[in-house]
């Protein structure tokens, strides 16, 4: 079953998507997976019988969601980020492309509170946006084979964090000092669709100090979200 919210990827559509996602996910329906993305929600049932039994309920719920004002349960994150050259593999490329300094890139990237459109591509990978227009950069022409875990990337009008080492085509501009996906936790992902995420710049020494603390997901929630 597909719930379609239109053809665009705008923040207002995504807010609708995530509102519907959390409502339907909390209905306790017998579904296998419910997958939100920019403008759609795909709901997967074990078979078409179960789908047909629940279709009406979801459709009804959807019409009610539209009329309700939504109380946000989403978190606000302030995430430390180190933009040192040792982590920011593509900083030079972006400086050259946009004719801006390293400081301007950091100021721009830390100036906004980003919206978490959805989690996808790999476990715990948040699609965040939208980044300031001066930073909009195409994906790398040749994707990297190994992007270091915890790297911060930008591509088109989005920014992201790679939860673990992975191939990928985003431009890498920094790194965060902790893991954002933990398989030992029943709620394994630090970020959830709809969360707001902003970054603040830390130097290499501060980065290492945080890194050494080996925060768990629950400790990170306490420390860096509100």
């Amino acid at each position: 079953m597909v719930l379609d919210f239109g053809d665009d990827s705008s923040k207002s559509i995504s807010i609708e998507v995530n509102k519907a996602f959390s409502t339907i996910a909390n209905l306790g329906l017998p579904l296998l997976n419910i997958i939100p993305s920019f403008n759609k929600i795909v709901i997967i049932f074990e078979n078409s019988q179960i789908r047909d039994q629940n279709k009406e309920k979801i459709t009804l719920e959807m019409s009610e969601i539209k009329s309700q004002s939504h109380k946000s349960a989403h978190k606000k994150w302030k995430i430390p980020a180190c933009y040192d050259e040792s982590f920011a593999l593509d900083l030079k490329l972006i400086q050259k492309l946009h004719h801006i300094t390293k400081e301007e890139i950091i100021n721009l990237h830390t100036s906004e509170s980003y919206y978490t459109y959805y989690i996808g591509f790999m476990p715990g990978f948040p699609y965040l946006g939208d980044i300031p227009s001066q930073l909009i950069t195409p994906r790398l022409a040749t994707p990297r084979i190994n992007i270091p875990a915890r790297s911060i990337g930008i591509a088109k009008n989005h920014t992201c964090i790679y939860p673990k080492i992975s191939p990928g085509g985003w431009n890498i501009i920094g790194q965060i000092p902790f893991d954002i996906f933990d398989l030992q936790n029943p709620n394994p992902s630090l970020f959830l669709p709809g969360d707001k995420v902003s970054f603040y710049s830390v130097n290499h020494k501060e980065f290492q100090q945080i890194q050494k603390k080996h925060f768990s997901i629950n400790e990170l929630i306490k420390e860096y979200s509100s």
Binding site: A25, N33, I35, P36, Y118, I119, P188, S189
Partner: peptide, 13 residues
């Protein structure tokens, strides 16, 4: 038989 209920967090079945 598969890992369900986590695809919204990027986890494949």
């Amino acid at each position: 038989f598969g890992r369900f209920h986590y695809q919204h967090l990027g986890v494949s079945p």
